[in-house]
Amino acid sequence: MTSLLETENADNFSDKDKILLENILKKTGPSRIKYALGAGSIITAVLTVWLGLFVTPNDEHLGDTVRLLYVHPPVAWAALYLAFGTTTLASLLWLWPKTRSFFWDKVAGASAEIGVLYLALTLITGSIWGRTTWGVWWTWDARLTLTAVLLVLYVAYLAIRQLDGTSKAKATRNAITALFAAIDVPIVHFSVLWWNTLHQTASVLTPGLHLTVPLSMGLTMGLGFLCTTLIWGWMMKARYDIELLKAVTGEMESQRAILQRRSEL
């Protein structure tokens, strides 16, 4: 973005800026990868819903409430490991001098926002499932409480991202905050093994990776995982585009204001 600032002395945007502008408009415009991710998301979503609601069998004990198995674990997985994992990794890549780039800060923020959406859905679908299975909407067991804490931590991270400062100081502050929030992710994961909880232990990510569900249910669940992953990918691209556009338009407008004031003098 430095080329935009170089034009301060010129009457208008330089040719270099025009090329940059065109590049950004092209980058954020329609592309093959966006269509592929979008189409993949829709196809896997339709298939998951169809298999999940109409094809897969009932559970012997749970009856048809078992069908939440194709929604709740996939959104939880995408929130905890995919979205927050990406935020953590991107934050580390910003903090490491060799890979330092504003790209990583934008990626971290985009992924955290999607993670918060998925985690909220995890809590809501989990609550619904709890009501039908356990008989309560909410209870203070370790898994549930720590997941609620996780949501609060990442909402706080998103709020801290809004604080101002120089771009470099901001990105460093964001990255450190993200690493603090990430501490709770493994605690949530292992909570069902470390303590007695009402929440059951894992069905896929078990210590020995033995699937504890029948194959038809397992495959549909797998499709659900693929679906939430593709949706995350599509959302990441869109959210990143927005950050890119915001950064450029923000800089161009402030530059215009400078030019305007100069012409008024």
Binding site: P57, N58, D59, V213, P214
Partner: peptide
């Protein structure tokens, strides 16, 4: 005063024929 069902991580298909 309150009963809660503790479901395990085991799932069993009730009507395998349906598939």
């Amino acid at each position: 005063s309150q009963i809660m069902i503790k479901h395990t991580n085991q799932y069993i298909a009730a009507h395998p024929n349906r598939v």
